[in-house]
Computed example of a mutant assay.
Amino acid sequence: MELANIQALTFDLFGTILDLGGSLKPAIGSFLSQRAAAVDADRFWAQWRARQRLEQYQDTIMMLGHSGYLATVRRALVYTLALNGVAAAPEEVDQLMAAWQQLSPFPDVNAALERLHARFRLVVLSNGDPEFLAHLVQHRVRFPFDAVLSATHAGAFKPHPAVYRRAAHQLGLEVGQCLMVSANSFDVVGARACGFRGAFVNRYGLPYEDTDLRPDLEVADFSELADVLLR
């Protein structure tokens, strides 16, 4: 592994540090049961998450102005409700959206971050809106990252190359001195295409992309990530 020169670990937040499904599915299940919906929380969440990513890709590709993370989440929710024939007034949509303010980290995260901080600069590099990221880092993750960087300032969502290149510039580092850590394979691919090193945290047991832009390492969780990087 070509990781000897790594100075900063840039972390994806949603689905990598924060457990989206575990945090949101109880609220989704309650919302759906109150409306006697035929779809269950697991299927609804999978559809919502997939649609959100499509909303982000469309937002970036059409270049009509950066909508912001929570705007794409809300549009995806409205679409997924319609897909499943679930009626909800705008204020009811807002009530379900409020669950995103209560996201919790995976249980392996904080102890591993403490270990890694002894050697590396630790940075959040997320598609989230700046104010939303500030709330989540301070009140939900509760870890003193060296920097919290939002894709908003690049005017596009990851995996657009501007996000990664701008992050390296802000950190005063060469791209090859940064290791992107993500449970989303598209994120690792995007970072590797820009010259970042990449760590794929395969929390969900999913195959990696069919590409030559391979991760430098693949681990199951943050505990294993710390074990490998601190050898």
Rank of each mutant, 00 (worst) to 15 (best):
E2N: 15
E2Y: 11
L3H: 10
A4H: 13
I6Y: 05
T10P: 05
L13H: 03
F14K: 02
I17C: 00
L20W: 12
L20V: 08
L20D: 03
A27W: 04
F31K: 03
L32S: 01
L32H: 01
Q34S: 14
A36Y: 08
A41D: 12
A41T: 06
A46C: 10
W48C: 03
R51M: 13
Q52P: 11
Q52C: 08
Y57C: 06
Y57K: 09
I61K: 04
I61C: 08
M63C: 13
L64A: 14
G68W: 06
G68E: 01
Y69F: 15
R75P: 07
R75N: 13
A76V: 10
A76L: 09
L77H: 07
L77W: 09
V78A: 15
Y79D: 14
N84H: 15
G85M: 13
V86I: 15
V93A: 11
Q95G: 12
S104H: 13
D108P: 01
H117C: 10
A118Y: 06
R121Q: 11
V123Y: 00
L125M: 09
P130V: 06
L133M: 09
H139N: 14
H139E: 14
R140M: 07
V141A: 00
F145H: 05
F145T: 02
F145I: 06
A147C: 12
V148R: 00
L149H: 09
T152S: 15
A156K: 11
F157G: 01
K158W: 07
K158Y: 09
H160V: 11
P161G: 10
Y164V: 05
Y164T: 03
R166S: 13
A168Y: 06
Q170T: 11
E174Q: 14
E174M: 13
Q177I: 00
A183I: 02
N184A: 12
V188P: 00
V188G: 01
V189H: 02
V189Q: 03
A193V: 03
C194L: 03
A199I: 01
F200V: 05
N202G: 03
R203A: 04
G205H: 08
E209L: 14
D210L: 11
T211K: 06
A220C: 10
A220I: 13
F222D: 00
D227Q: 15
L230N: 04
L230P: 08
